[in-house]
Simulated scan of single mutants.
Amino acid sequence: MNESFKELQNISKSIDEILRVDEISQEIKESASKLNKTVEPCVKEIQQSASRLNNLVQGCFNDLSQAEDIWHSKQRIDQIATSEIWEEVGDLSGRVLRLRRLGNEYKSETVKQVKKSWYKRMARLENSSFYSNTNKPKTSLNIFEKDDLIKNLQSEVNFQLAGLKQKLSPNKAETGFMRGKYVTING
Rank of each mutant, 00 (worst) to 15 (best):
A67G: 05
S140H: 14
Q58A: 13
E17I: 07
N10V: 00
L141G: 09
Q79G: 09
E174G: 03
L153N: 03
K116Q: 12
Y182E: 12
G180Q: 06
G103N: 07
K120D: 15
K165H: 09
L99A: 10
A32Q: 02
T184Y: 07
Q79M: 13
S25L: 08
L56D: 01
G163D: 01
H72F: 14
P170R: 03
Y119M: 06
S73D: 15
A81G: 13
L141E: 09
F144G: 04
N152F: 01
P137I: 05
S129F: 04
G163M: 02
R100T: 15
L99G: 04
L92D: 01
S83N: 11
I15N: 03
Q79N: 13
L102H: 09
S83R: 08
R121I: 06
R179S: 14
Q9E: 11
N36R: 12
L141I: 12
Q79C: 06
L56N: 05
T82L: 15
I15S: 05
I143Q: 10
C42Y: 05
L161K: 00
Y119N: 06
Q9S: 05
L141C: 10
T175M: 05
I185A: 07
L161H: 00
I70Y: 07
R101C: 03
E156F: 10
Y106W: 09
D63T: 09
Q9R: 08
V183L: 06
Y106F: 14
V89T: 11
N2K: 12
A81T: 11
L56W: 00
N127C: 06
A162Y: 01
F159T: 03
K181G: 04
A50I: 11
V111Y: 04
L164F: 08
L125Q: 04
K146H: 07
N186C: 04
M122I: 13
M1S: 14
K29G: 07
K146F: 12
K107R: 11
E30D: 15
C60I: 15
K29A: 08
V183P: 00
S31V: 13
G176D: 06
L97H: 11
R179P: 00
K13Y: 07
F130Q: 04
S65E: 09
G103Q: 07
N36F: 04
D147V: 15
S93T: 12
L164S: 01
Q75R: 09
Q48F: 10
S155I: 00
A67P: 00
